[in-house]
């Protein structure tokens, strides 16, 4: 039994933002797979919910003429996984999508909810970081676009004003064209689990040197993060095992892992070092490079 005081359904984005403006207590519910858990745990007493599930325009995934990929906030992970635009351009996001929960969860959980929930473990987050994705936020006053890196403020905290909602993600071609990418979810189970570490890498190569490497990590700090030092180091370096080892070691520097009963700091850092390299091995091949022995 859930402690729900009110429930309304918005018909459109403008309808939704008008309702949000009129009642600051309203809480958006999309797939509900985070919201209902919170309700069950008594973290949202007397909730007043605003459902956005009816807003069909927020489900779309499309590629604009300039190559920008637009993913509606309500796109589910099942939808993302099955979408050719995603598969052909940013397969790492498809990998992240299918690593999520189980089939039932993927059918209802949305990518917008995943990011707005603000968890460092969100499976889509590290890839969206690595892709330099941007978020379009709408309110009755207008809209603004923020990079995903700036959207995360702290654990469970995102830069979303009470009257704002997320309408879509924008991924510019500069973020993915010419890159090979790969996502590794390291968890204790192969399904229905929270990541111990999420590693998403993108790399662009020319000949046998890295032109650019982007590394997004989840659960390596209070929010998802990018490994700036390692990325800088990689630029222009020859692609061979020692470089990868160096990238792995430097990636750890950007992290802020903690010891908890789930895993020790030492183990988490070891995983960052190891899995960053493993992800790169795959990404290099996807970027057109040769397999590293």
């Amino acid at each position: 039994m859930y402690d729900i005081q009110g429930y309304i359904e918005a018909e459109s984005v403008s309808d939704a933002v008008a309702l949000l403006a009129s009642n600051p207590r309203l809480k958006i519910i999309a797939g509900g797979t985070d919201v209902l858990i919170k309700l069950r745990h008594g973290q949202m007493e007397g909730a007043e919910l605003l459902s956005i599930r009816k807003i069909k325009e927020l489900e779309r995934i499309e590629q604009l003429a300039d190559g920008t990929i637009v993913i509606g906030a309500l796109a589910t992970f099942a939808q993302i996984f099955h979408e050719p635009i995603i598969h052909n351009n940013i397969p790492a996001l498809a990998e992240a999508a299918v690593s999520m929960g189980g089939p039932q969860i993927r059918n209802v959980a949305t990518i917008g909810g995943n990011i707005c929930n603000g968890a460092t473990s969100a499976d889509s987050a590290s890839t969206l970081f690595a892709l330099d994705a941007r978020l379009r936020l709408r309110s009755s006053a207008g809209e603004r676009v923020v990079p995903v890196q700036e959207f995360y403020l702290g654990p469970g905290k995102v830069d979303l004003k009470p009257d704002e909602m997320l309408s879509e993600f924008l991924i510019s071609p500069a973020g993915f064209r010419g890159f090979g990418g790969h996502y590794i979810k390291f968890a204790m189970r192969k399904a229905m689990d929270i990541a111990t570490l999420g590693v998403s890498v993108m790399c662009k190569i020319s000949g046998d040197v890295f032109r650019e490497v982007k590394i997004g990590l989840g659960v390596a700090g209070p929010t998802p993060l990018r490994c700036v030092e390692a990325e800088e180091f990689a630029k222009g370096k020859a692609i061979y095992a020692e470089t990868l080892a160096g990238i792995g070691r430097l990636a750890v520097k950007s992290t802020n892992a903690r010891t908890s009963w789930r895993a020790s700091r030492e183990y988490r850092e070891h995983l960052v070092e190891e899995l960053t390299q493993r992800a790169l091995h795959v990404a290099i091949v996807r970027a057109g490079g040769a397999e590293i022995g």
Binding site: M188, R189, K190, D193, W261
Partner: peptide, 16 residues
């Protein structure tokens, strides 16, 4: 008890 739920208690799934 730290993990008295099926997220944190690692009961294998059919995939495992």
């Amino acid at each position: 008890t730290l993990n008295n739920n099926l997220l944190d208690y690692k009961l294998p799934t059919i995939m495992d």
